[in-house]
Every structure is written in structure tokens, then in C-alpha cells.
Design a protein around this nucleic acid. Structure first.
Lengths: 188, 188, 188, 188
DNA sequence: TATGAATGAGCCTTCATTCAT
DNA sequence: AATGAATGAAGGCTCATTCAT
């Protein structure tokens, strides 16, 4: 039951931040959700801003590690895309709040330099893959940032809709969306 | 210059909400941006929540009207898609903050029923078009909500990236993105 | 009734700081004593520390001005001493809390550089007079800091005792104390 | 080194209270200074207030005992004065923080009845000597409280200045101050 | 009508105190 | 006996909202 309080706090903060945003979430809300006293949060995090930044960096690391592990470096672009897309899907299925928290938080005024750097480092991993695919003629000649936007934006929106209970993310649908997204960027 | 204070307030609120979110924006911030006294805001809006809801409903109406006016009811799906996509592009180019405000705000805990209803009514207009397109076999057989997510999510993400100065939305790029999005939903 | 709220706040803060010290005084205590809302204090002072420092500088200025105005520059040491002592007495009679606040506050960790500087500037005025008196052979050859300590320390202590209701500072007593203090420093 | 933890705590508390006052000193500060856990303090003292009161009573007892031991009951006033003054000097030299703590603390709102009583009992010892001296015509006819204020106030102020590093309390200076203070109260 | 001074509820944070280890 | 993690009451401060001008 007791287990790790830092973990409990991070989990509660994630949930609340994903639900109500940083400024709409109070420390007492997090404390209550985590079943700890409000003061306890300050034994683990210097202040509210440190807490979001910790959480953001954790989240980005998890997401990044998920996409990068077992990455088929030697595969062709379609395989790489499949790897990334499916990993994103599995991750988002299991950690929907984490995905939405990352999305809602990236670029916010309360993130520190480290957080921004980590996030951009992650994006640039994706960007490098797309650049490779362009060179190999497998995907379109469009700015990588635009292509990322299309795939990432589409993907995240799907899970927002899912969170709101308007859509199930069944394997069939995920399969169809993967094809859609691939069609959106592959060379025709 | 003075003109309409209510207009000034809405414009200022839009800018600040888009920049810092609802809870991260204070009434004095809006008042300063609008060059009015803080008390003046309460002559036009009952309270902060009424203000966001007004703004949201205005924004959705503007967006919706833009997409619906001159809609080619009799055209084929590709034409309809082109209409919607280009209108979205023009609108977002001119009213980037409005687009991003709508996106950041939709689904938030502080929206009232009217706001939620208006937004869903708008979405269902798009959905109806997609359903038609599916029946006509021009676009894929995928849940409309998923398709909307793909196109809308991609589109909004593009403008988020643009706002952060990482990408220009040139006509060429918008043209390419339109094709990408169409490829993502059309029947192959 | 309304009059000047900043004045009310300073007066209340003075009273409470003199009574309970800086850290023992809460902003709500001051607000209540001043008959204003707690938030109002922050319209006039950036924070609690700014408030003490303002108050301290005001207080030192008042005290200093009182001793310096009409100072008998051309008189002999006894006359100068009488001037200073009586002015101190009148001031302390009228503004006992101000005197005790200055005494309790001088040297505290929460004073800023400006406050410390102002206070030392004031002390050095007294010191200069004593140095003159020593040169003229009218007062003892003892470090000025020691002589100031004797007179000032004795004086302040008297008013502490008075505040506690253990002693009246009648003209006769003040007269006697003046003689005592003069005897303590004059050349024998 | 370890020896007596209660002693360590009292010493640490004395130092911190003398430096930052009662309300400006936190229990963790004291614990750190005493090299004990914060909880340990509560094994020796019921709470913070009990701690100051213990410390105050200890301090007053030490001071009082110092002045009273070997007191020349049969000597004349000048001898008695010399005894008191020199004992005060030796005590303050060795236990400067104790002297300043007593001074800063006497009369504070957080002292309990016992503390106040002990302190007044101590003062009344001095007062009795002065009353005797007055009867014998060796010292002035001034309220004893005023005379105590003069000598005690002067004395304490000297050590405040010393603590701030602005003055050394050399034997010569102490000798001179003793004479000054005697001159301030003796019959002329 | 417009303002901004005033308010107090509520937020972030600290810290005296408790208690399981 | 000693610790320090945990707590929640309370402090400093902000800000949505009111209201006298």
C-alpha cells in the first residue's frame, strides 16, 4: 500500500495535469489524489514547477525509450515507420495520460531549459529518420517538421478523442490509422 | 482606436489564453493587454468563466462559418475536402490564435454545456461530410471520428509548430499538406 | 475615517513589530490592526520585507531629523548633549513604539543595505559630536562607540521599562537621567 | 563529543535565538546546529515554547548566580557595584550570546509566568542593593528602576556593539565603562 | 460608462510536531 | 533513545471580483 510516495505523487500529478492543466491543478489536489499530505510533496520536489519539469522529463524519457528500443536501424522506411507508430500506439494505450500530458505541456512557459532540450532531442530523433526516408525516396519531399506534425498531430488527436470516450482505439482502427498516416507521408 | 471595448477585451483574452492557458491568465493581464481597467471587463462579462465561454463560442462560430460558407454541397468529396482544408488554412493563417485557442480549450473543465454543444455541432458538420464521402466510396471506411482526428490533429499541430517559429506555412507547404491529408483519408 | 491607508498600515505594522517582532508578526495581524484587508497591504508594499524596511527607514529618518533640527552647532558640548538628550526624550515620549522598533530592528537579518546605511549614517552624526567633545576636553577619552552605547543603551532601556508599565518617565526623572548620562560621559 | 544531547540542543538554540530571534528560528535550524535529528529535540523539550523558557530560565539562573556568588554583603556600595559590574563583564565576555539572549527575550510574549517571575526576582536583587545604597546616601535619589535601566541598558548595548564587531571590550574599556556607570548613579 | 482601489478566498509553501522504525 | 519522513495548520502572497468614485 505505502510503497513509493514519490511514485504516487508523480502518478497523481500526471493525472491531474493531464486533466486540468498545470495552472488549473493545485498542490492540494495532487496531494489528495496521491493520498499524501500536501507538505509531503515538498519532501520530494522543491516546488510545483520542479514537479512538472520532473514529470515532463520522465514522461519524455519513457516515450522516447519506447520508440527507440529495438529500433530497426537497418530496415527500410516502411518498417521504421511501423515500428515507431506501433510503439507509439502501445505506449499511448498503456499510458494515455502520459502522452496527453506531454502534448499539453510541451512548449509551456513553465518548462525549464532541460525539459525543452530533452523534448527537442527526442523530436530530432524522429526527424532524422524522416530525413533518411526522404533521401531514400521512400517518403515525400516535405519539410520534416511538417511531416512530424501530420503524424504526431493526428496520433495525439486520436487519443484525445479516445480519452473523451468518443472512440475506441481498437487494433483494427489503429491498423487503419497507421495506413492513413503512412499514406500521408509516403511517396506516391 | 478606442472603438469597441468588448472587442478589445475579447481580442486580448484570446491572445493571453492562447499563450498561457485559461488558468495561467489573470484578469489584470487581459485588462492590461486590452488597455482597459480590470473592472471594465466585468461590465461586459459576468466573470472569467463567462468570458472564456463567450470567446470560445465566438471562435467556434467564426471557424464554423468560415468552413461552411460557400460550401460546395453538390461537389464531389475531393472538392469538399479542398474547400474545407483551404478555408481552414486561410482562417488559421489569419487567426492563428483563434485556432489554437479553440484547440487548447475544447474539452476543458471550465466550458459550459452551450460551448460543448456548439463545438460538437460543428464537428458533426464535418462528420456528416465524411459519412457522405464514405457512402460514395471516395474515402476510406474508417470511423469518422478517427478521420477527423487525423486531418484536424495534423492541421492544428502544423500551426502549433508554426507559432513556435519552427516552420513557415507557405502556400507550397500548405498545398503539400493538403495532399498528404487527402491521401490519408481517400480510398486507395 | 478612511484617510490614508498606507499610513494606517505603517502605524499598525509599527505597533505589531514593536510588540512581537518581525517574525512574530503576521500580515493578517497587521491588516486587522490597520483595519484593511490583508491583500491591501500588497498594494502599498511589495512584500513583508519591503514593509519593515520602509518602516525602519521612515523611523530612522524621523528620529534623526528630530535630533538634528535646531542643533546648536556653535554651542558647547553640554548644550549639544542637552539638545540631543531632550529631543530624544520628547521623541520617545511621543513615539515610544518608533524608538523601540528602531532599537529592536537595527542589525536584523531582514534589513536591506539601504536601511543599514541610513542607520549608520545617523549614528555617525552622534559620533561626530562626541569626537568634537573629546577634542575640546569636555568629555572623556573613551571610544565614541562605547559612549554612544552607554547613553543610547541607558536611554532605550528606560523606555522599555516604561513600556512595560514599570516606570513613568516624568520630567523629573528625565531630568535626573539626563544628568546621570552626562555624568557618565563628561570629563571629571 | 556526543556527551549530553540536551546540552547540545540548548547551546544550539541559544545561538540561533540570539542570532535570529525566537520566531525567526526554526526547529530544523536548531537541530542542524546541534547535530541531532529534529525529532530528538522533542525528547528533551515538550515544544518550542518550553525550549525557550527552559533556556531563558537557565540563562537567568546562570547570570544571577554569577552576580550573587561571593557577593560582598558587608561592603560599601562602591564595592558592591564593582562586584556586580565586573561579574557582569566576565559573564558577558564568556557568554555573550547568553547575555544578548536574555536581553532580547525578557518581556517577550512567549515567556511563561515562571520565566517572568525568575527574571523579576533577579532584577529585584539588584534593586535591593540600589535601595540600600540610596538609604546610605552613596547613590542618587532616583527610582531604582531608572538606575538599573541606565547601568543594565548601557552594559547590554556595549555587548551588542561588540557582537557586531564594531568595538572590542578590552579591560581598559571595561574599566572606563565601569567608572562611567558608577558616575551615572553615585551621589555627586 | 469606466476605473482601479479594496477585499478575502484560496494558492503555494514552510514548519512545529508526531510517529513508525 | 534517536531519527527523519510525514502531516496539516498557518503564513505570505495572488487574483477574481466588487464598488465607490
Amino acid at each position: 500500500m505505502a510503497a513509493n510516495k514519490q511514485e504516487d505523487i508523480l502518478k497523481a500529478a500526471l493525472k491531474m495535469f493531464a486533466l486540468r492543466g498545470y495552472d488549473g491543478t493545485t498542490i492540494p489536489m495532487i496531494a489528495e489524489e496521491a493520498n499524501v499530505g500536501a507538505g509531503t510533496i515538498y519532501r520530494y520536489f522543491e516546488n510545483k514547477q520542479t514537479l512538472v519539469n520532473s514529470l515532463f522529463q520522465n514522461s519524455v524519457r519513457m516515450f522516447s525509450d519506447t520508440l527507440r528500443s529495438d529500433f530497426p536501424e537497418t530496415g527500410d522506411m516502411r518498417q521504421k515507420f511501423a515500428h515507431i507508430f506501433r510503439r507509439m500506439g502501445e505506449f499511448s494505450e498503456q499510458y494515455t495520460e502520459t502522452l496527453l500530458f506531454i502534448d499539453a505541456t510541451a512548449g509551456s512557459y513553465y518548462l525549464d531549459d532541460q525539459s525543452n532540450e530533452n523534448f527537442h532531442e527526442f523530436l530530432s530523433f524522429i526527424e532524422r529518420q524522416l530525413e533518411l526516408g526522404k533521401k531514400e525516396g521512400q517518403i515525400r519531399n516535405m519539410p520534416s517538421k511538417a511531416m512530424i506534425s501530420i503524424v504526431y498531430g493526428a496520433f495525439v488527436q486520436l487519443f484525445k478523442v479516445k480519452r473523451n470516450g468518443l472512440l475506441e482505439a481498437t487494433p483494427e482502427i489503429m491498423q487503419a490509422v497507421e495506413e492513413s498516416c503512412w499514406d500521408a507521408i509516403r511517396m506516391h
